[in-house]
Design a protein around this nucleic acid. Structure first.
Length: 267
DNA sequence: ATGGTCGACACTCGA
């Protein structure tokens, strides 16, 4: 069977329901993982998802900020939420699912952006981001026998040289500083995670998932960053059939500044 | 070199 999973930082799920429905109708991923839903749990728009055949939904939201959700055509079980850094933010949710009989633990993350100043002594938000990534190091892709893992989300770090429009000009910009990129690569290495987007797209090719709202013309400037990621345990690598970054979604009506990223597997 | 744009919620914060 084919199994597809999409991750998208939606920057307010309620405001953006029209384009979320557009994505689901056009692409029909089996699972959609959202970040920055900015929606309290009691106000989450369950009905439009159910109407499109997405009957299995696990959410972790809060008022005003952050928030993550897993929306699925396939049954979900064993939902967990971890409060990274113990600050009460809704930035992680994990579920279990079995596409085609394959047992998979799925993690959906929204890593803190980290503010503007890349120095934890003057910017506590940057320290929080580093602490969050440090805590992610404990997460192993192959911790349980017979269970594969997928990790998706807005990790707010562009780890590789060609994950940003200008490596040199970005070295002191939060999201591409060495302490962040090395930290994220350590999470990947120590947890035995495979970067599926880069398994599919050569490292020398530019690859972005986010374009700032502040650019006059985001497409002409094309100063993007790869902040959104799909990782898996190594055993799923040979099953990966495609990666799609839906760049056109950045030009949709009232867009998010992030675009959907989809991985397609054959199990 | 600097300021530029969003969204939530209630005027400022986080991104």
């Amino acid at each position: 069977m084919t199994f597809s999973i999409t991750t998208w930082n939606i920057n307010s799920v309620r405001l953006r329901m029209p384009i979320v429905e557009q994505l689901l109708k056009e692409r029909q991923p089996d699972v959609l993982c959202l970040q920055e839903t900015k929606c309290p749990n009691e106000l989450f728009p369950f009905e439009p998802f159910r109407a499109l055949g997405y009957e299995h939904i696990e959410i972790h939201g809060q008022k005003g900020y952050h928030g993550v959700a897993v929306i699925s055509k396939l049954p979900l079980s064993e939902g967990h939420r971890r409060d990274y850094c113990s600050v009460g933010d809704a930035r992680h949710i994990s579920v279990f699912l079995s596409p085609g009989g394959k047992r998979i633990r799925l993690h959906n993350f929204y890593v803190p952006a980290g503010g503007d100043e890349p120095d934890r002594s003057v910017n506590p938000k940057f320290g929080h981001k580093l602490d969050f990534v440090e805590e992610m190091r404990a997460l192993r892709a192959d911790s349980e026998d017979g269970v594969s893992s997928i990790l998706v989300g807005d990790l707010n770090i562009a780890p590789l040289e060609h994950d940003v429009w200008s490596h040199k000009q970005m070295l002191k910009i939060v999201s591409h500083t060495p302490v962040e990129t090395e930290g994220l690569l350590a999470v990947m290495r120590e947890g035995n995670w495979l970067d599926l987007m880069r398994a599919h797209v050569p490292h020398h090719e530019k690859l972005y998932t986010w374009w700032s709202y502040r650019a006059k013309d985001w497409a002409a400037a094309d100063r993007g960053r790869r902040l959104d990621h799909i990782w898996s345990s190594p055993d799923l690598g040979p099953h990966l059939k495609a990666i799609e970054v839906l760049k056109e979604a950045r030009g949709w009506e009232r867009p998010s500044d992030h675009v959907p990223v989809t991985a397609v597997f054959d199990f």
